[in-house]
Simulated scan of single mutants.
Amino acid sequence: MKTISLKTAKIHQVFEQLQVDFAGNLTHDAEEHILEIDNPLGQGLIKGISFKGGISYMEFDMEFTEDVMLVASSTQYTPICFAYCSQGQVSHSFGPNGERHELENFQTGILTSKTLQDNVLYFEKEMRLKMILVIVSPTKRAGNENHLNHELQKLFFKNNVVDNFAYIGSYNLKVAEKVRQINTVSVTGIARKLMIEGLVHLILALEIQQHSDDLKNATVQESSLTKKEREVVRELSVFINNYPEKQLSVAYLCKKGGLSPSKLQEGFKMMHGTTVTDYIRDVRVRLAENLIKTTDMNISEVVYSIGFISRSYFSKIFKAKYNCSPKEYKDKQRSFAISA
């Protein structure tokens, strides 16, 4: 097993150390660090970027040829880490001899530790791993009591006493969608950083909300779906997003994915927090909003292009989501374009 020790929480120093240990090619784009690895140790990418307020983002898309143990030493100022695994699985422990916590694909996790406690991540060999970490660190400036890290400590820790804390949450595909959006950001420079920062804040909000929902409903994590069935739900979700204009029924999706109706509904409720029908409707409405904003199609053309039959029904659900009718929305977009 290859062991890598990180003695710093500063992103640029972390990547300098990772470059030495992994012998990769390190590049930068608007303060984003990108480490490309293609050698006998493994193949893939590790990316990271820091934002104001002590928030950092790291993304792993790697496959190692040997087991890797990444040991991050905790400083006096303990960060709170929000983890998400979209492919494969990763293990965590407090110290190399501590109990291991498994984070599977599509699961959220919240990790932090007491002062000067090592945090260890274990990456299995010959397994493709895709995971992210959103790291919220305390700042040393005045007024730190109002910092996000302090607010999160009040949320997660009793009497604001920081201790070893590992929470493995429910399965969630909303986070996976935000990670996908980060990876499709094609602009460069400061615009890229701002777009990624906005999406990272959304990921952080989704993880916090997931934790809150799990506490309210302890049965959420108890799912009868296997790992393969969860992957099928993800694939069907992608299919719905790619073909929203198709008349997709529960029966059709069950047949396509090889799932029973109860398994399909359970999967969508668990990973999207909604039913299959409501998810399809939401995908269509979001696509319609984008078509109204970015094309010259009239409302009727938009309605029929996304699979709706009734324009009046579409107008009703569009207004419920965006607080205005499709026509009003289009007129506002047109007025904005003219004034610009």
Rank of each mutant, 00 (worst) to 15 (best):
L121N: 13
Y122P: 14
F123A: 04
E126F: 15
E126G: 11
E126M: 14
M127A: 11
R128H: 15
L129T: 08
L129R: 06
K130V: 07
I132S: 12
I132Q: 11
I132A: 08
L133W: 03
I135H: 02
V136G: 00
P138F: 03
K140S: 14
K140E: 15
R141S: 12
N144T: 10
E145Y: 06
N146G: 14
H147S: 15
H147L: 07
H147G: 12
L148I: 01
N149V: 06
H150R: 08
K154L: 15
L155K: 05
F156E: 02
K158E: 15
K158V: 10
K158R: 07
N160Q: 13
N160V: 10
V162S: 05
V162D: 04
V162F: 06
D163M: 14
N164L: 15
F165E: 11
F165H: 11
Y167H: 11
I168E: 03
I168T: 10
I168C: 07
G169K: 01
N172S: 09
V175P: 05
V175D: 02
A176M: 07
K178I: 02
V179Q: 09
V179A: 13
R180F: 15
Q181D: 06
Q181S: 02
N183G: 10
N183Q: 09
T184W: 02
T184H: 04
S186Y: 05
S186K: 10
S186W: 06
V187F: 07
T188Y: 10
G189T: 01
A191L: 06
K193V: 01
L194I: 07
M195F: 10
M195N: 11
M195G: 06
I196P: 05
E197F: 05
E197R: 10
L199W: 00
L199D: 00
L199T: 00
V200D: 00
V200F: 06
V200M: 08
V200N: 00
H201V: 00
H201S: 13
L202W: 00
I203D: 01
I203C: 08
L204Y: 00
A205V: 01
L206T: 08
I208F: 04
I208Q: 04
Q209T: 13
Q210I: 01
H211P: 15
H211C: 11
H211A: 09
D213E: 15
N217R: 13
N217T: 05
A218K: 13
T219K: 12
T219P: 00
V220K: 09
S223K: 07
K227E: 13
K228D: 13
E229K: 12
R230A: 06
E231S: 15
V232L: 02
R234W: 14
R234G: 03
R234C: 06
S237M: 09
V238N: 06
F239D: 02
I240F: 02
I240C: 07
N242F: 12
Y243H: 15
P244E: 01
